[in-house]
């Protein structure tokens, strides 16, 4: 009887020691968003000011991480997972080498990055249903800087 109880505990223990925990970003009656870091090296801190901003096209976010690689150049890609397939929906360069736009560009390996500010995007009506979105940031050498899987439950 005891072994039956211990077995799932052991699995849970091994599992949590390898993967990162799931974080909740927002939760209201219409929308729930969770994320989990898909970077094997580290977890990622991320919060939203409010869920409602997601429908207006601009939302304040806070994000923090420690850089494993320099970001003289930084790119972001967003992929939607639908029916087991990955569909790229957004991709752009965030940091360029000379005179970049954003304040965190050019930070070095080992530096702490904290971004607090608006993120604007084309306002989509989030369709009803459950889906997964992967946001990946990588540098000019194709090293992953941040990788997060968002699970969006919309009702």
């Amino acid at each position: 009887m005891k072994t039956f109880k211990a077995a799932p505990l052991i699995f849970l223990l091994i599992y949590t020691s390898i993967g990162w925990p799931t974080h909740s970003v927002c939760k209201n009656s219409h929308l729930e968003i969770y994320y989990i870091s898909c970077d094997p090296l580290q977890d990622f801190a991320f919060t939203l000011d409010s869920c409602s901003g997601l429908t207006t096209g601009s939302v304040n976010i806070r994000a923090a991480t420690v850089l494993r690689h320099s970001i003289r150049e930084l790119f972001v890609t967003v992929n939607l997972f639908f029916n087991g397939k990955s569909i790229p929906i957004f991709s752009r360069q965030l940091c360029e080498q000379n005179h970049p736009n954003l304040s965190f560009c050019g930070k070095k390996k080992g530096e702490h990055v904290y971004y607090e500010g608006p993120v604007s995007f084309r306002s989509y009506d989030i369709p009803h249903g459950d889906f997964n979105v992967t946001v990946e940031l990588f540098n000019g050498d194709q090293h992953t800087i941040v990788c997060t899987n968002f699970t969006i439950l919309s009702r």
């Binding site: 005891k2 109880k5 211990a6 505990l9 052991i10 223990l13 091994i14 020691s17």
Partner: peptide, 22 residues
């Protein structure tokens, strides 16, 4: 007593996992 035994078991497993990984 049962609960105590269970937590002991969990502790031992945890330690083993940690030692094994290191």
């Amino acid at each position: 007593v049962r609960r105590g035994a269970l937590s002991l078991l969990v502790f031992i497993t945890f330690s083993l996992v940690v030692i094994f990984r290191t």
